[in-house]
Design a protein around this nucleic acid. Structure first.
Lengths: 341, 341
DNA sequence: TTGTAAGCGTTATCAC
DNA sequence: GTGATAACGCTTACAA
């Protein structure tokens, strides 16, 4: 047995199994050049004494920590938290742990901060959430530092092994199809901020669907927001004062869509009777607002799990492309347009 | 200079400064038995070559990682995320990093899971969020494992060095005072689930304030929820069907309060005209719902920072008690009661 | 296929 | 006060 008190080490295993510690190390690391008999003998001892390799020691020897980092500039609390859960799904019962690192994408020091963070903590790999996942310099930095990385995004930002993707554009197209089918013709767009790939993808989806249906998109039917609630209020106010009034609007995220609810209510416009609203994200507010909001939801948690697996177990499925389909969550904020007059 | 390519090590510092590595180690660890001249000489070299101690090596030698763990059973996404930001405020520019670990308080294996997690990762310390912060066995486990811990709670759960506290009870009392001052007499309570200390504290605050004002609290004016939205709907439905109807209600968190909005709207009861609603948490939904909700807010981020500092720098202020005052965030969900009749 | 010796970068022990 | 020397628990040469 191991020396009582402290956890068994590789030396205990080696001594009891009657092999060298290097052989034990080979077992741990699944070296292919081991005789099966030896491997089994060692594995038996490992199981018996409950040996677990010490991650700190491995980290020192390998010059690389068993830590996954989540880098994000808080797009939305629930999104970040769901993502954390998904990563945990992937690394539960492994030696990996998840470290989080909120960053400020507007800070000129962001890249340098991340560089020294990676240098210090020697992370095994990092997971990049939008919008900073769209930053190519950041990806380049990870490569330079020998740090694995996976980007989560709404477009083909990188090679398959570094990317987990959603199909925002298609989804927005089908949202518009849905509204048109219900009879809507004057549909407005509250788009997200410049510089966000997701915002661009969603706008493209909107515009191409409208074009496909032969519908006009006057300037007065689009407005830009910041992805925040207040900007949704302002943008909706712009859209709703134009005549003839739009009968439906798509907002590039739920928070702005909630702002649009607010603006509509202040103007005495009924949702969905006089105005249909569709959001994007399926965040909690969409379910809790009144009337419950129809929106587009990503399978964030599954995406996060896939992203983490690409890092910790690239063998399994990591090299293959991962595109996760979003789905329309139908609730009560959409109805046919009001009769003209 | 250090060998080019890799970062300088303690050996480089020792060689250049002409001292032993142990002396450098003493400088790093602020040993008091060093001659000032020696210290300054070494510090100069450290600054010159930009030496940073390697956390992985320290972790191995000290048998303790430079990681803070956040253990939580997601009370609320925004709360958790704010807390993370607060911890980061405390450990920014230190060698510490934050690892997160969502747990399932309903799992019978929770304690064992946490035990093996702590054993494996050798965390410097953990931060416990409600409701698991109220679990005394968990605190005991941390003590046994030699892992620092700080509990965040709404009552005096532990000694000052292990606690960051909020004053939920007093705050709820002042909420009731506020409603009574406006003229409300029939005030309802949607309380949180059994087993949550925060729920108990808030209920106590409610009841003692009502008693102080000589106001009756019939059974029909209280209902229990789970802190989730749907339970708020159900609880409010129970409260709102009792006659004479309550004119105000306090919900133990915002999510249930949002559920109460929902129930009121379904029954055609106007908020705040016919029913005033006050929540607790100041979560985003309170600001985004219509009408914007009056609620009680904690300074989560500051509390998190204080908690992390208790762990990483107990010298500064860690031993002293930390009670953070919540404050009433006044918005538009409260009005005087409707005229009788 | 397996073992030996020498690190990885720090701290602890115990002399001086 | 300070410095050799041996841990800490593992991995990577390189040898056998």
């Amino acid at each position: 047995m191991s020396k009582s008190g402290s956890a068994p080490t590789i030396n205990d295993v080696a001594r009891i199994a009657g092999v060298s510690k290097k052989t034990v190390s080979r077992v741990i690391n699944r070296s292919p050049l081991l005789k099966d008999a030896t491997r089994q003998k060692v594995e038996k001892v490992i199981a018996e004494i409950g040996y677990i390799p010490n991650p700190q020691a491995r980290a020192l020897a390998l010059r690389r920590n068993f830590l996954l980092g989540l880098l994000h500039d808080n797009p939305n609390a629930q999104t970040v938290l769901n993502f954390q859960e998904g990563v945990l799904d992937a690394i539960r019962d492994t030696e990996f742990a998840l470290v989080v690192r909120p960053v400020d994408r507007h800070s000129p020091d962001m890249l340098e901060d991340i560089r020294s963070f990676l240098e210090l903590q020697r992370l095994y790999g990092v997971l990049l959430l939008p919008p900073i996942s769209e930053n190519d310099e950041l990806a380049q930095l990870c490569r330079e530092m020998g740090c694995g990385y996976v980007r989560m995004g709404s477009a083909a930002l990188d090679e398959a092994e570094h990317l987990v993707q959603s199909n925002d554009r298609e989804m927005v197209e089908s949202v518009i199809d849905y509204l048109v089918e219900l009879g809507h013709r004057r549909i407005g767009l509250i788009e997200g901020p410049t510089g966000f790939r997701s915002a661009a993808e969603r706008r493209e989806g909107f515009l191409s669907a409208m074009k496909r249906h032969g519908l006009d998109v006057p300037d007065s039917a689009t407005a830009q927001g910041t992805y925040r609630f207040n900007s949704g209020v302002e943008a909706a106010n712009k859209l709703l004062k134009a005549e003839p009034r739009i009968t439906a609007l798509f907002a590039s995220n739920d928070e702005m869509a909630a702002g649009a609810y607010h603006a509509a209510r202040e103007r005495g416009i009924e949702v969905p009777g006089q105005l249909s609203i569709v959001g994007f994200d399926n965040s909690p507010i969409a379910a809790h607002i009144w009337p419950p909001m129809t929106t587009v939801g990503w399978p964030i948690r599954e995406m996060a799990k896939a992203a983490a697996l690409k890092l910790v177990d690239p063998g399994s499925d990591g090299a293959s492309p991962s595109c996760f389909p979003a789905r329309l969550v139908t609730r009560d904020s959409v109805a046919p347009p009001p009769k003209e007059g």
